[in-house]
Write a protein that binds this DNA or RNA. Structure first.
Lengths: 336, 336
DNA sequence: TTGTAGGCGTTATCAA
DNA sequence: TTGATAACGCCTACAA
């Protein structure tokens, strides 16, 4: 590998001069500068990021922790982050932590050792590693939390109004004559799972809807569990007239159960999903669903992190709450 | 940040001893070793990967280049890679290059400067950067190509038997009485696009099926284009009885057109998709499709790369071809 | 078993 | 405008 030393020798100047020239700093005559740049290109010079990183304490790398990159929601968020970060020449280190706090810890340590400039994190479900995040922040690590919040970690965050959106959706069903509403909710101990379920419960209570324990089951945000729980709900003789699924996998599981039982949607059962996916437009009936602004979430998180990194002194911590929105399609029937 | 120097001072030994102890190397007494490890933990020491990387010329980081992380196929492949690489404590740098060769070049340079230990790449569509890859290999960079091949780059690769699988699928339709078969193919200049289309053309010819130019259109592996082209095909008075879509987005676009035109599948039109997605099981009718072994592709690619990196001397280059397989569901009708 | 010292490739300081 | 040199934190001969 060719280094600035090689270039220096080849051009007949010092490494200091080469460094200045290549970094477009002042203190080099135009002629020498051009010579150096020319020669560098000719020799195929590429800066050694490790050495530079050591020297300037900056790596142009950020770590991203999510629970599952296969979840289309996270894919879309990550894709948006990538767009923003690439524009500033940063790389992303993607870490899939499942819901495994141990893996979360290990990845965090790996990322710290690699001296990432910042972290964008959807913390593992139960927030067991709260103290680690607090510690990182205290040591100056720039962190942006998204999707899931952890209390008392003093850093930027981007989430949606989970509670309100589920509340509204439940009301939407009531307004269409539904009184018996079930739901496939997620991981109760996770931020999103908790918030969405609470939005649902609040709505049930405040809007005087029937609450039926059998109709409200956790699918743990997983397709398989959601499928099984949906079967349980739909096998009863006393069924709800509508079910809300609280993320994309839950929606999928519910749909599988519905198909298997040959239940007609929306005639025999209305369905509202959560998250968007291309297929929800395309299947029959198309799925009415709550769409998270995944792209905006990713862009916002990345932008906040960049600001925290590059304007360390003037950056002020922000807690951004974005709105999710209901898209009406064909899976809800009005009973009125 | 605490360094081995701090630990050395604190324990009262030299940095050399600390380094040996922390890296589980011989030459340190058990007592001193324990003291050091203890103290390191106490002080919250984390190794500086940049310094280490510089010294040992290894970063435990690999770069992954794909065209679109939002494509569920790539998400699944990446997820499998992550599993394999995490087990050996490697990190992934994910680079979304779209089909933009310029971005591909820039990311490549970024990754080289960051001294990644290897690269796993699905090259941008038209393979314009062939010479760059060749150069990298020549300079000792470990590369595994997947999904798309580039000729004359001397490195490991993992692909599926695109041509054969489309051929078989076409035959499958013929065996069920279909003689008028259309297709929404992909990017003709890309490896996968080209191979799949050729498999189709070969089948049409060899099996004496009707070839109708109007029925064979490129959707560029994109949903929107595939949708439009599907509309074109289906608007004609003389329609095919079956259409093969050649990736997941093409399938989606085709489905959208079908839904919009209220065409009954499979009664009025049979459909075979490509790639799998959870929804294809769930929608009505469920979609008969060619499934790529995405998980195996990712695992194989990562395993090959690890072998190339860790057993540099004895590693032999392999070109793995995996089989795609047709999953029969409900979207094909037998006309016989 | 332990320690000394050099060097990986940069950048930054300061003197020439 | 230029260059010599120190330092970033680590690993590793080699010496003690």
């Amino acid at each position: 590998m060719v280094s600035i030393k090689d270039i220096a020798k080849s051009v007949g100047v010092s490494t200091a001069t080469v460094s200045k020239a290549l970094n477009h700093k002042s203190g080099v005559s135009q002629t020498v500068r051009n010579q150096i740049i020319e020669k560098a290109k000719e020799m195929g010079y590429v800066v050694n990021g490790l050495a530079r990183g050591m020297k300037i304490s900056k790596t142009f790398t950020v770590g991203v922790l999510v629970s599952d990159i296969k979840n289309p929601f996270f894919s879309e968020v990550i894709s948006a982050m990538e767009r923003v970060l690439y524009a500033k020449k940063y790389n992303l280190m993607i870490c899939n932590v499942g819901e495994n706090p141990q893996k979360e810890v290990e990845y965090l340590e790996l990322l710290v050792s690699k001296k990432v400039d910042g972290l964008i994190v959807a913390p593992a479900a139960e927030g067991q590693n709260l103290s680690i995040y607090r510690n990182l922040v205290r040591h100056g690590m720039k962190i942006v939390l998204f999707d899931r919040l952890i209390d008392s970690v003093n850093c930027d965050s981007v989430v949606i109004d989970n509670r309100a959106s589920i509340y509204e959706v439940t009301k939407y069903l009531k307004d269409r004559g539904h009184k018996k509403i079930g739901s496939i909710y997620g991981i109760e101990k996770s931020y999103t799972g908790h918030e969405r379920l609470n939005g649902f419960k609040e709505a049930i209570e405040e809007l005087n809807l029937e609450y039926h324990k059998e109709w409200v089951r956790s699918g743990f945000f997983r397709e398989e569990d959601s499928y099984k729980q949906s079967l349980e709900i739909l096998a009863k003789s006393s069924k709800p007239t509508a079910i809300i699924a609280m993320n994309n996998f839950s929606t999928l599981g519910l749909m599988r159960a519905v198909k298997e039982l040959e239940i007609k949607v929306p005639d025999d059962l209305s369905i509202i999903g959560f998250d968007d996916a291309e297929w929800m437009k395309v299947c029959s009936p198309s799925i009415t669903t709550v769409i998270q602004p995944a792209d905006a979430i990713g862009m916002t998180a990345a932008t906040l992190l960049l600001d925290a990194i590059e304007n360390e002194n003037i950056h002020t911590i922000q807690h951004v709450v974005l709105k999710a929105k209901l898209i009406e399609r064909e899976s809800v029937k009005s009973l009125i």
